[in-house]
């Protein structure tokens, strides 16, 4: 079957600085692939290049079999950018923000009844149907993230691309997000997402691709089967444990007050990381 996304030796630069130095990645229909890595490893740049928002300077990037710069079938894609990008100086209701997700199908034409029904379904999927008329400014970080996911789902896409959907999201919203993604997988969607750690999504993920310095460092198939124990994978010693003193180059970002984790969410120290699933 033709891959949904395929990157072959993709390089990209941001402001003249090489960020991707030859990334190979294939996402086949129905798969869930997670991109992991430290800050600056290129994981966000990789997904933004995939959705055509960062120009590719070398290699080949194909979406649904078409070179990304020629790809025009945007209705097949649902994109959830990092949350900080969606702010406005004028209030907007949840329904208004989510309705923007239908524009991939409607373009410059006005929205109709089918569009409104799809928006209602998307809000219902993320558990915010009862707040459709509220202002998005009144939402918590996790609820806001759910709105952005509903916006992507409103277009009923075949492929979902999510950039750090769990960043700043409380546990209750994380569980709802995991349920939402599972429902999308059940209807045959393909998912590519950037994560800091697998967290509650661990069981859903077919392949975890760890990036470091703009290259694929390693690939873990079915990270959910590896287990949650303290026993590390053999290759894990390559990047862990961290040196006792000094900042690690390209080290994982460990939020203060949390135990050290490797990016796959396996507890390195004695921490509680069973999560919700």
């Amino acid at each position: 079957m033709e891959p949904v996304i395929s990157l072959t030796g993709v390089t990209a630069e941001l402001g003249g600085r090489p960020v991707l130095r030859g990334v190979d990645l294939t996402v086949r229909p129905g798969e869930v692939v997670a991109l992991l890595g430290a800050n600056g490893s290129g994981k966000s740049t990789a997904v933004r290049a995939t959705v055509g928002q960062v120009p590719v300077s070398g290699g080949e990037l194909r979406m649904f079999g078409t070179a990304v710069h020629r790809f025009r079938d945007w209705r097949r894609l649902g994109y959830v950018p990092q949350r900080s990008t969606a702010t406005g100086g004028v209030p907007a209701t949840l329904r208004e923000v989510v309705s923007a997700g239908r524009l991939a199908r409607r373009g410059l034409r006005p929205l109709g009844r089918a569009d409104r029904a799809a928006v209602d379904r998307a809000l219902d999927l993320v558990g915010l149907a009862d707040r459709a008329g509220d202002s998005v400014d009144a939402l918590s970080g996790g609820q806001h993230q759910r709105v952005l996911i509903a916006r992507a789902l409103a277009g009923e896409p075949e492929l979902l691309v999510l950039d750090e959907p769990l960043a700043g999201v409380d546990l209750a919203s994380q569980a709802i997000l995991a349920d939402t993604l599972r429902a999308q997988l059940d209807r045959g969607a393909t998912v590519l997402l950037v994560l800091h750690e697998l967290g509650p999504l661990r069981q859903l993920i077919d392949r975890a691709v760890v990036l470091a310095h703009g290259r694929v460092e390693r690939v873990v198939e079915r990270p959910g089967d590896v287990g949650d124990g303290v026993a590390p994978l053999p290759e894990e010693s390559a990047c862990h444990p961290p040196p006792a003193n000094g900042p690690r180059p390209g080290g994982w970002e460990v939020p203060p007050g949390r135990g050290p984790h490797d990016p796959l969410g396996r507890a390195v120290g004695p921490t509680l990381q069973t999560g919700i699933l």
Partner: peptide, 22 residues
């Protein structure tokens, strides 16, 4: 007439580009 499209562009330009809006 173009309020939904202009709203989307002014609210989140990157998302609007990925929906294929001009």
């Amino acid at each position: 007439g173009l309020r939904r499209q202009l709203f989307a562009v002014c609210q989140d330009e990157e998302f609007a580009r990925v929906t294929g809006l001009p």
